[in-house]
Simulated scan of single mutants.
Amino acid sequence: MNVLQALFFPPEQPGGVSSMVPYVQERFVRMGWGMELFSIPKRVRGKGAGSFEFATFDWRRYAGVPIVDRYMQILKDYEWWTKLRVKGSYDVIHAHHPVAALVMKKLFPDTPVLMTVHSSFEKELLLNGRIEEGGPEEQFLTSLYGELEHQVDRLMTVSEAFKTYMSAYVKHPERILVIRNGFDEKRFKPMAHENEVPQLITMCRLVPAKGLDILLRACAELKRRELPFMLHIIGDGPMREELEELAKTLGVYDDIVFYGYMLHPEEFMPFFDVFVLPSRAEAFGNVFAEAALCWLALVGTDVGGISEQIDHGVNGLLVPVNDAGALADALEQVVVDPSFRYELSRAAYEKAKSTYSLNRVIRQLKRLYVGAAELGD
């Protein structure tokens, strides 16, 4: 069996897909399968020409909108790069981005193409204040779900919550398969430790959608309550300078460490006590499972895939979105009570180990690939 994993971003790019797909490849290759990773380099921009059409809607009604025009050019660029670089034949193509899926199906119509939707570009743009709700950008991007349903041989996503979200934009939502992400336990080295001052850690791209402004306000409230803590922020992005200024304004800059991007944060994470991320939306939230596998207590918002991972009060704590006071209350519980924190972290580890195993993902994908290849013959 020969499988192509079609990504958009290169596999070394930080993010949920990159934290899983290379390990999937490693496992399948070890089993004797052929599996390659394909992506488009950042330098390939503006190379594609010609036209790209959709079967389920006319994109020209949105022409002239910068984000739409850029998306259409990216489709052409990906097609140009694929024609240039992909020379072999494959039994199955598994795409992890709408651009990859649509291009692969266009160029290899007789090859089964499976598509996993990992996140929502339109929700990210909305939450980051770059587009308006109901605007042409959102209409165009949500129309792509119906196009994917029409074009690919199997449509998948990573959580029941995101399946529900996609259901509004497809004809047969019951056919969407949920395969939750999985992680190689060997990457994680949890260790027992005692920190005199509770160490909080968060890891994400520094954009409005991740809610770090709310986290800083919650930390300011912890300080007002005279509760000891240190917050470690791993990640980079356009909000970094704004967040640093907010931390200074709130009087918590000296209680926070901004690290920037880190290549292997799982090697660093086991030394901390609590993972916290108050996202405003999250299709799955890989980083919560990764933190759980490092024996950290979890605190997150009651949205999307986060609420599927955290059973409130059992293996972590859930708070409403945009509620700094509720987040401060939750953090206080895990800061002041080491025994409770320990119970949450061990329960989080057990759930992540049993539910988000890479072995489970490999079994599910193997069945899918074999079935798709047989139907494609």
Rank of each mutant, 00 (worst) to 15 (best):
3 V>K: 07
5 Q>I: 04
7 L>G: 01
8 F>M: 09
13 Q>I: 10
13 Q>T: 12
16 G>Q: 04
19 S>F: 10
20 M>S: 11
23 Y>C: 11
24 V>D: 06
25 Q>F: 00
25 Q>C: 05
29 V>N: 13
31 M>Q: 15
33 W>V: 05
34 G>L: 03
35 M>E: 11
38 F>Y: 14
46 G>T: 03
48 G>Q: 00
54 F>C: 08
60 R>T: 14
62 Y>H: 00
68 V>M: 10
68 V>A: 06
70 R>H: 02
72 M>S: 00
72 M>H: 02
73 Q>R: 07
76 K>Q: 01
78 Y>I: 07
79 E>S: 00
87 K>M: 13
89 S>E: 12
93 I>A: 03
97 H>A: 09
103 V>P: 05
105 K>W: 13
107 L>N: 07
118 H>D: 04
122 E>C: 08
123 K>S: 02
123 K>I: 03
124 E>S: 14
127 L>Y: 15
131 I>Y: 14
131 I>G: 11
132 E>V: 15
133 E>A: 12
133 E>D: 15
135 G>W: 09
137 E>N: 07
138 E>M: 13
139 Q>R: 12
141 L>I: 03
147 E>Q: 07
150 H>G: 03
150 H>I: 06
151 Q>P: 01
153 D>R: 04
153 D>P: 00
155 L>R: 05
155 L>M: 04
155 L>P: 01
159 S>I: 11
162 F>W: 12
164 T>A: 15
166 M>H: 15
174 E>T: 12
177 L>E: 14
178 V>A: 11
180 R>A: 08
181 N>S: 15
181 N>W: 13
181 N>C: 14
182 G>R: 05
193 H>I: 12
195 N>A: 04
196 E>D: 14
198 P>Y: 08
200 L>S: 02
201 I>Y: 00
202 T>D: 07
203 M>V: 02
207 V>G: 04
209 A>H: 13
214 I>R: 09
218 A>S: 08
229 F>M: 00
230 M>I: 09
233 I>W: 04
235 G>I: 03
236 D>P: 10
241 E>Y: 14
243 L>Y: 05
245 E>G: 13
247 A>M: 08
252 V>H: 04
256 I>V: 15
258 F>H: 07
263 L>R: 14
269 M>F: 01
277 L>A: 04
279 S>F: 09
279 S>Q: 11
281 A>T: 13
283 A>Y: 05
284 F>H: 10
284 F>L: 10
285 G>L: 05
286 N>Q: 13
287 V>L: 08
287 V>C: 08
290 E>A: 03
291 A>K: 11
292 A>E: 08
293 L>S: 00
296 L>R: 02
297 A>F: 02
301 T>R: 06
306 I>A: 01
315 N>M: 11
318 L>P: 11
320 P>M: 07
323 D>Y: 02
328 A>E: 08
331 L>R: 04
333 Q>N: 15
335 V>F: 03
341 R>M: 01
345 S>V: 01
348 A>S: 05
351 K>H: 00
357 S>F: 02
359 N>R: 13
366 K>S: 06
